[in-house]
Nucleic acid binder design. Structure first.
Lengths: 103, 103
DNA sequence: CTAACAGTTCAATATTCCCGAACTATTAAA
DNA sequence: TTTAATAGTTCGGGAATATTGAACTGTTAG
């Protein structure tokens, strides 16, 4: 049974956060999550051509960067943006990224 | 003679810019360049343990991301931040990064 | 000239990323 | 109940990237 670990935002270094965002697919997912309240893993996918193992890895990375929270609900995993926490840790960063994200 | 190519900022995708910033050494260099008007390559180095070929590659990457401009002056290369242009292309991004950069 | 300097380029190694295959867990259907 | 389908994770090996020592280019100081 998958149990996810979510870092405290204080433990997330800036370069890790930037690295998590520095990918078109992950940017797409973050944009979707920002526009929606919560999404399943496949629901967060930026397109349907991306393999699910890859998708899973992207989400793991976003989790490790403190960007999303994942909890199990039935057989789905529900992902949500940790927006308030992330914004407090890195003020203005996510806003700037989302404002420029044309994906 | 090394002649550098600098992209138009319009041609720099967001994920490339983020990728360029998503590294502690490059963040250190950008912070230095933001604090100083111009720096040689070795002068921009975040520490002196980093090999110069690595340093050269980091600077090439920052150049490709539209973050810095490099021109030759004698036998040195003078690097400057393309701050105004970058800010116009990605409003608030560099500010957010520099504000959170503790390196 | 010659030597030293500032940095680039190249190529080999090390690291990271991607994705198919196999797996776990949960629920819907028969 | 089983059985099958769904939703996702994990693992491993090949592909792609990054790092860095060595050799090189171009510039200036002596």
């Amino acid at each position: 049974m998958p149990r996810f670990t979510h870092p405290r935002l204080d433990d997330v270094p800036l370069d890790l956060a930037l690295h998590a965002l520095a990918d078109p697919n992950r940017l797409g997912m973050i944009a979707r999550l920002a526009a929606t309240q919560q999404l399943s893993c496949t629901g967060a996918a930026p397109c349907d051509s991306i393999p699910k193992s890859t998708l899973s890895n992207h989400l793991k990375l976003l989790r490790a960067a403190g960007l999303i929270e994942t909890k199990q609900a039935g057989r789905e995993m529900i992902n949500t943006l940790r927006r308030a926490e992330f914004d407090q840790r890195f003020p203005g960063l996510l806003d700037a990224v989302l404002a420029n994200n044309l994906y």
